[in-house]
Every structure is written in C-alpha cells, then in structure tokens.
C-alpha cells in the first residue's frame, strides 16, 4: 500500500502525492518512513527531505516544524519547504546576505521572535544551498 505524503507550509501546500518512501530530517536524526510505520509524532529539523516514488528520488529543502505519521498518511508541517528544482541559488544567496546583514545591524535588545526568524532564514538558506550544490 502506498504512502500519502503531504507537506504544508503557512503559505501553501507544497507537496501532496502518493509515494513509496520518504526520509525526514528530525531533531533526533534522519528517519526513513515505509508503509505500515507505527504512528509517530516528531519534531522536524531544518534539512533535506528525500522522497522516492517509482524508483525516482526527489529532494526538498525544509525548514523546521512537525511531522505526523498515522495510518498511511505522512503529514509534515514546515515553516518553509521548497523542491530542489525550484531553488534559485541567486535568490537564496541574496536572501542569505540580507538576513546576515540584518542580524549584524540588529540592536542588542532585538525582539526574540525577530531574532529567531532571522536565524531560521539563515539556516534554511544554508540548507537550500547545500542541497542545490549536491543534487546538481
């Protein structure tokens, strides 16, 4: 029985398809999910998510969140997610630079949520670049 994978971010539903297997980066390390997996709820770390469907492996960069596996449905809630083909190095590098500059210029009493947002952006940009360079 195939798995159903669903990746949702606040902006959009990035991925929704039936797949064979998926490897999710969690805070405890990567986990591979096959059909019939025990119900699981875990935290997702920034990293690279690998999906195999019909022998073809595709990659997504994903930024922090939660994943739930129940029955044959894998639901991933991520702050950000993007498929490898859609990553544009130029855009990512510009975003990374912008975030780093903002972080450098930030006052000492910066709002913690704003700080987290910037750090998250930098981490996610790093993940995207690493993924793009390796896949190519």
């Amino acid at each position: 029985m195939p798995l159903t994978l669903e990746i949702v971010t606040p902006e959009a539903r990035v991925y929704s398809d039936t797949i064979d297997t998926v490897v999710i980066p969690t805070t405890e390390g990567e986990i591979g999910i096959l059909p019939g997996h025990i119900p699981l709820l875990t935290r997702v770390a920034d990293g690279e998510l690998r999906v195999t469907k019909g022998g073809v492996e595709s990659h997504l960069a994903i930024g922090g969140g939660f994943a739930q596996i129940e029955g044959d449905t894998v639901s991933v809630l991520a702050e950000q997610a993007i498929t490898a083909e859609k990553i544009d190095e130029g855009v990512v590098e510009a975003a990374l630079k912008r975030a780093e500059e903002q972080l450098k210029a930030a006052p000492l009493n910066i709002d913690t949520s704003e700080l987290e947002r910037l750090q998250g952006a930098i981490r996610f940009a790093g993940v995207q670049l690493a993924l793009k360079r390796r896949v190519r």
Partner: peptide
C-alpha cells in the same frame, strides 16, 4: 474523518 489508527503513538524525542 481521519484515518483510524489505534496503535500507540510514538513521540520523538
């Protein structure tokens, strides 16, 4: 409704 899966759920960490 959600799929019914009554096996115990695992939490990580």
């Amino acid at each position: 409704a959600d799929t019914n899966d009554d096996r115990d759920m695992l939490f990580e960490p």
